[in-house]
Design a protein around this nucleic acid. Sequence first.
DNA 1: CTAACTTCCTTCGATATCGAAGCCAATGGG
DNA 2: CCCATTGGCTTCGATATCGAAGGAAGTTAG
Lengths: 373, 373
Amino acid sequence: MRLVATGRAESRAELARLSGLAASSVSLRVEQLIEAGLFAEEGAGASRGGRRPRRLRLAREAGVFLVADLGAHHARLAVADLAGAPLALADFACDIAAGPDKTLTAVIDRLHALAADHGLREVPVRGIGLGLPGPVDPATGQVVSPSRMPGWNDFPVRDFVAGHTGVPVLVENDANLMAVGEHRHSWPSLDNVMVIKLGSGIGCGVIVDGRLHRGRGAAGDISHVRILSEATVDCSCGHPDCLEAHASGAALAASLAAHGIAVDGPSQIVDLVTDGVPQATAAVRGAGRLIGDVLTALVNFFNPDALVIGGSMSGAEPLVATIRGVIYERCLPLATRNLEIATSRAGRDASILGAGHLLLGVSDEWIGRVLER
Amino acid sequence: MRLVATGRAESRAELARLSGLAASSVSLRVEQLIEAGLFAEEGAGASRGGRRPRRLRLAREAGVFLVADLGAHHARLAVADLAGAPLALADFACDIAAGPDKTLTAVIDRLHALAADHGLREVPVRGIGLGLPGPVDPATGQVVSPSRMPGWNDFPVRDFVAGHTGVPVLVENDANLMAVGEHRHSWPSLDNVMVIKLGSGIGCGVIVDGRLHRGRGAAGDISHVRILSEATVDCSCGHPDCLEAHASGAALAASLAAHGIAVDGPSQIVDLVTDGVPQATAAVRGAGRLIGDVLTALVNFFNPDALVIGGSMSGAEPLVATIRGVIYERCLPLATRNLEIATSRAGRDASILGAGHLLLGVSDEWIGRVLER
DNA sequence: CTAACTTCCTTCGATATCGAAGCCAATGGG
DNA sequence: CCCATTGGCTTCGATATCGAAGGAAGTTAG
């Protein structure tokens, strides 16, 4: 099902090749899925030198996922097909500091409205995915001691949303979703990928062996590593000189403000850099060195196939160039030999894609129910 | 097979519970394995309130693994059963700088002799495992740009040994083997474990999701991370102020020598610390702070369930205490909430255990052949 | 245009796994 | 001491997967 949903397989033969199942087994399963209304047959594909394959795709009536990627003051909403590909997108201004109850209710309403607006009122909602800018406990679907989400600590987000809608709900940290989306969209053949999200904060998601690494729920944190610096800056976490306190978009904005340059939001910093404002470029280079220093240790340790730099700050060329330079200079040759360092290719909807992907993974249950009938 | 080999299952019922297979399927398989001579039935186990189980164990004639853990001037040899449990152990003085050809030939001879000495001449050798103090490419079984193994670069260790003996051969970095052994022996229920090997060098092996993480072959390197320090020391890798250049056993020995205290080998440093020699204790504390600083970043990033400190230096109490202190102080509460920090429990044969464990994983092939007859 | 591939998909018998039911051999309470 | 209960193991019919064989629908070479 996933292979067809993601477009990796278009015919029974391809399914057999990719899944490793026998061709006969595949045929049986596909038959069932078509009968259940989840798959549809659609004409013939291109021949590869023999009989032309009968093309398979997800049936439109199979269902949709509703996905929201929440930021501090803003949410990105999407209705996606079962592959996680967006069918409709929207932006939604909402202050996460209003607390979980209000925020979540509003987001859910808007999501349903978005689906209705696009003529998908009759299509069953198979799952809801939520990206949050804070640590999420994968076992309980709760937010755990988030630094920038007042009122959300220990709130049972998953149970709340599932209770209000009655569908499977996935709650995940936004950087993790981004990592999954980026991996699936741009680097599906690589097994070990690090994705850094540089926005007003600094987030990181890790794909190990093709799957999201969560650890005990906090894996991927790089923002509170201590760095070497002249001036001491205290971080919100209580320790001095965390990476985030020096190199995050918020930190850069503060330091620019001290130079008399007012910015609001990280994308404005990118604009300044693009316009060639020297203070902005210098600040961004400094941040790049700090981030690069931290990443060298992690690249040596984790030895990934690719390091992807995303988030709104990743548009700043000198930032990315500096990070790349530091890593190639300081890391072991063995670690950088085959390392790809690239900027995001899935763009700002990476998290949406990621949520869709993970949701399909939680879908075994309803797929089973649909097939049983 | 592995479940019985490792002692996790002793009866058909336990196999069924742990493997998730149906009891009937388990019975069939066990029947085959007994007939093939790989399993043996041995009396009855303890009742759990009902009929007593029929105890299963590996048949002695099922086979053995030969394992060698090579250090710079010394090798630890073992004959192990298919569970990786040592049946016979030996030490062997050999200079790895003599080059791969001589060293490997000598080691293989000694391994076969060791088996013969213990009346295992008739038992088939099912695999050979080698731990090496340098990076190993998992795909080819070659050593790749090792810093302290002159003459070994790109030598096809696996093919060489397999060619000379005709059995499956596993070649792996020593810290990785140690991580596997430690994980299996002491922390089998935890999924994410970091193992640090503190000896004359600094090594690290990582277990992710219950399996060894290799990355592209270099994963787990922590010795060439740049650290903050007053004095500048150049590392053999060409960069200044690597962790290894300041905090490894070799570096400590050098710094003690500068104070007029001659030591040879890291275990002597441990002795000095135990004897309360202040310079040694201070040196070790300093190293602990540096190592702890580096580990902080990795613990936040990787968020393991346990951090195990092994290697010959791990006997130095103040070293371990300092590392532990730094980590608990600097890491995110979320990362240390459930973190175990412990010293090695499998002891110096951890690598042997690890090799045995991995070898059983490579054994599918001959198990299949044996069952077919 | 024909003949000889290739590739796609289905049919059909062999095999493996499963789960329910039942027998076996202990424990433990009355 | 007896018998209900528990857990261990096997038997047996139902189901799922597989692989080989073959038919269907193309492409390519002569």
